[in-house]
Write a protein that binds this DNA or RNA. Structure first.
Lengths: 138, 138
DNA sequence: TATTGTTATACTCTATAACTATA
DNA sequence: TATAGTTATAGAGTATAACAATA
């Protein structure tokens, strides 16, 4: 009951189940799924322009504007000028944003760990590695 | 660059990359993604009601109607009465639907195989098994 | 002339409510 | 009274086009 399913269907099912389980966690931290995605993209310390950010997270640049408006109003993100290109605006995480993301991420990781119960370290490594290969083979 | 990503983000990325790669294959067989999902659900020989089918594939029962209308008009699916409940309609694959699905699936599998290049049989088994566990742990 | 951010518009997809026929 | 299928409507999500400022 496993060899029959397409890989795409399995990824979709796993992604949907994870999203459903994680939504309440994000809500408890006052974040939507896409808001969390933005914070995650900025968390490593990145400071991309809005256009680059939109491409990184596969989100429409026109929709990103309202998303950033909300995050900026909540004090989680800041938009500043790009000294090298005055058309562009650089997006950064505020310290409040950094803390909010870290807290939400801890909750997300707890859910994931629970869902991976029974899998050993090597199996988890294979899973992450294979998914990363699939995501980057396009 | 792997331990940092959330599992949900990895699943979403892999699912999106697969969907993008598979869409042209499905188009070549005259199928949309959701049409293929319906055919796949019926392929094992199942004969569910429309409501059960909608729940199985996580699709809205009201949207399923137009989807089945199209598949029925194309001769890939048949809707018949349920002898046990005259309110319900039983959905089945026609022989044309069976063949169309088999042909499309072969193309899908070829794409997946190409994307999994470099992974051994055991790694692929771990991947499928872990994804199935994640999808069914809700 | 091309590009970034922005706004406005149109379009598609999805969810909700109401109807019919059966149970 | 409740449920399967259907239809119609409303809502959210997404894509397209046009604009101002800058390159």
């Amino acid at each position: 009951m496993n060899e029959d399913d397409d890989l795409g269907a399995l990824c979709a099912g796993a992604g949907r189940a994870l999203a459903e389980a994680e939504r309440p966690v994000l809500e408890a931290h006052g974040l939507s799924m896409w808001q969390y995605v933005v914070l995650s993209a900025l968390a490593p310390g990145a400071a991309p322009s809005q256009l680059v950010l939109a491409q990184q997270i596969h989100y429409d640049k026109t929709r990103l504007i309202a998303l950033l408006d909300g995050l900026e109003a909540a004090g989680l993100v800041s938009r500043g000028p790009d000294p090298a290109d005055r058309r562009a605006r650089i997006v950064r995480l505020t310290s409040a944003g950094t803390h909010r993301h870290a807290a939400a991420r801890a909750g997300i990781r707890a859910v994931e760990d629970q869902r991976l119960a029974g899998l050993g370290a090597e199996e988890r490594r294979v899973l992450r590695s294979a998914l990363a290969q699939l995501a980057n083979s396009g």
